[in-house]
Design a protein around this nucleic acid. Structure first.
Lengths: 226, 226
DNA sequence: ACCTGAACACCGTTCAAGT
DNA sequence: ACCTGAACACCGTTCAAGT
């Protein structure tokens, strides 16, 4: 095992003529690889050195294409947040259905990449996040939500999406883990009788809770005089 | 400047008899200092070495009292989440008022220590978090929320608290910063007409948004057949 | 224009000691 | 029982070069 661990030039022993040498570094390739790495190893697993390794480049080469690590994270997040509109036949006709679709799609995008949930609220909003907010805002506005209520409506819904994703991204443990949490609760028994009895920590109907919460908010918003 | 930087024994030049030498390390002292450090420097500012410095001890001394850095974070979080019930005269008489109080108090506790918002959803729930959930649960249950609805109600409200705190902890920038965000929005103009016009990014009525969101959720929950 | 290694100033934690 | 320094295996990033 001579040599350093990076730059794994994979040409066998021969001429190296047709070796699949690494394509040149680009911003896009860096970001795509960062997303893969984040998906595979979580947020603590993304390291400039490891990222460079995966790309078959030296660490410092990244810095030509990218500002710094924060920049990589921001770009990865924005990539993952891109909104891909459904076929127009699948778009609900009513505004409520449209809003629910936008929010569910948002939530699903973040849950596919759990690290995104913790990242989103800690950087300035990127293009794709703003796009989603714009769509949501337009839908609500067209539905007749008064201008005065618009921002409050959006932030309330945003809070639900953020709360739901941030929580689930970290508490969606195995049934095993949930059972353990419940047992821990019961151990010095009597401390938490209500949530012990309701089995709060065993609950895992994330989708249902999210939908109902959104539903309540929309009820409240649409009942407002306009 | 000879000597290392830690262990700043502050006895002047004399006998050192009555020097205010550091009190012995204890779990409590470590956690309290960690909270101070987190408040002052944010989550990235907490380092085992810096923490030890503040305590006038060697780094490794901490490990006698504490498992590891994660343990310190969990303990700091739990400390900050302790619920201090108000004087009984200040407790609202109606269940809605009680719930709102519990949630507002929770939110305020987290906003006082913005690092707590990002920490809470990434560790198993500690004693004080469970206590708060228990109180919330009991209040709702006594108010007549059906057992089947209880968990969904709690998680919905939890989502609102988490979303609101996590978001605010990182977006509550100065008026200056908010203006900059708005300008960035207007720059390649026409991309986001609706949120540009509604000045979504300039909005800072966090309290109002939170209260209204909670209100809508409670409306929805209490209108359920029981 | 693009890529590089050496070096710096940090991390958290293991381990073998000290008292 | 409590505290310690040296050492290890990492970090992100600066800088001065290389092609």
């Amino acid at each position: 095992m001579a040599g350093k661990r990076g730059k794994a030039r994979t040409d066998g022993g021969g001429t190296g003529e047709d070796a699949p040498s690494d394509p040149p570094l680009t911003r896009e390739r860096i970001v795509a690889t960062a997303v893969d790495l984040l998906d595979a190893e979580g947020i603590g697993g993304l390291t400039m050195r490891r990222l460079a390794d995966r790309l078959g480049a030296g660490v410092m080469s990244l810095y030509w294409h990218v500002e710094n690590k924060d920049d990589v994270l921001a770009l990865a997040l924005d990539t993952v947040l891109a909104y891909r509109p459904p076929a127009s036949t699948d778009v609900p006709a009513d505004w409520r259905g449209q809003v629910v679709h936008l929010l569910e799609d948002w939530r699903v995008a973040m849950l596919r990449h759990p690290w995104a949930a913790t990242l989103l609220p800690r950087q300035p909003l990127g293009r794709n996040a703003l796009d989603r907010l714009e769509r949501l805002s337009r839908t609500l506005s067209e539905a007749g939500v008064a201008d005065d209520d618009l921002n409050a409506a959006i932030w309330s819904l945003w809070n639900s999406v953020m709360g739901a994703t941030v929580t689930r991204a970290s508490y969606d443990r195995s049934a095993e883990d949930r059972a353990a949490a419940q047992r821990r609760l019961e151990d010095p028994s009597g401390q938490h009788p209500t949530i012990e009895r309701s089995r709060l920590l065993l609950d895992d109907d994330w989708d249902g809770v999210f939908r109902r919460g959104i539903g309540f908010l929309l009820d409240g918003l649409s009942r407002r005089p306009r």
